[in-house]
């Protein structure tokens, strides 16, 4: 029980009468990396947005750290963060302000220590030089890293990534998988990564689930998934 970070119990969600998520039950184990693989339009983003509380499930339960909560972003001291498919940086703020916004708005620490915290994270992600740029001046890969920085400053217990490598070239993809693996090595953060890039999923995951038609077809470690020869793998 205590090693389960997020538990889904028969969760369903439909839009305009169309069932997108069909009674899914699954566990995400604490401090591991979980990948969710699936074709475009199978409801991966919808599933992830239900985990953070942007969408409410029509039926079923989502337990975070054993507790059911109205707003999942934080349950007690247990924090979650979400990295959008589109990065979703605030375009009117500089990179630095984007990263410190959570601390600024919740009045955490003094201004100087917020900034130094942000610069430290930006430095770790290799984008410290862009701190004073506007998001529109950045490449897609840099924007993605700013979005990761904005999430990391929250010191989340659970980090959700929606297609972190979409629109990225192989070099940037490798950077992102290095970031995820580095966080994994720290061993104190649960990472759930939605993607349709199989190679990327193999390079980061402890477990992989394949989502199709609103249901999870199979869950297992990368070797199991590789050897399953599931026909879906060829179509992704």
């Amino acid at each position: 029980m205590s090693d389960v970070s997020i538990k889904l119990k028969e969760v369903s969600k439909s839009f305009d009468g169309k069932l997108i998520i069909d009674t899914i039950s699954c566990d995400f184990i604490k401090n591991k990396v979980h990948a969710i693989l699936g074709k475009s339009g199978t409801g991966k983003s919808v599933l992830l947005k239900m985990l953070i509380g942007l969408f409410k499930p029509d039926s079923g339960k989502i337990l975070i750290n054993g507790k059911e909560a109205e707003h999942y972003k934080s349950v007690g001291d247990f924090k979650m963060s979400y990295i959008f498919q589109s990065s979703a940086l605030l375009n009117s703020l500089t990179v630095l302000d984007n990263v410190t916004i959570f601390l600024d708005e919740h009045n955490v620490d003094e201004k100087e220590s917020r900034v130094s915290k942000a610069l430290k994270i930006l430095n770790e992600l290799g984008i410290k030089d862009s701190a004073n740029k506007m998001p529109s001046e950045l490449s897609g890969g840099m924007r993605k890293r700013v979005a990761i920085a904005r999430s990391l400053i929250i010191e989340p217990d659970i980090l959700l990534y929606d297609e972190p490598t979409s629109d990225l070239d192989p070099i940037n993809t490798k950077t992102i998988s290095q970031i995820i693996n580095k966080l994994k090595a720290r061993g104190d953060i649960t990472q759930i990564v939605v993607t349709h890039d199989i190679g990327f999923a193999y390079s980061i995951s402890d477990t992989i689930s394949i989502l199709d038609n609103g249901q999870i077809l199979i869950t297992g470690d990368p070797d199991l998934i590789k050897s399953s020869k599931n026909p879906i793998l060829d179509s992704i």
Partner: peptide, 25 residues
């Protein structure tokens, strides 16, 4: 125009995931 573009580009949703109330902000 500003708020609509923030909605369309998921900036508002991003604020919500950080527990920042769009009304207040």
């Amino acid at each position: 125009a500003e708020l609509a573009s923030m909605s369309v580009y998921e900036e508002i949703a991003a604020l919500k995931t950080m527990n920042i109330d769009p009304v207040r902000f």
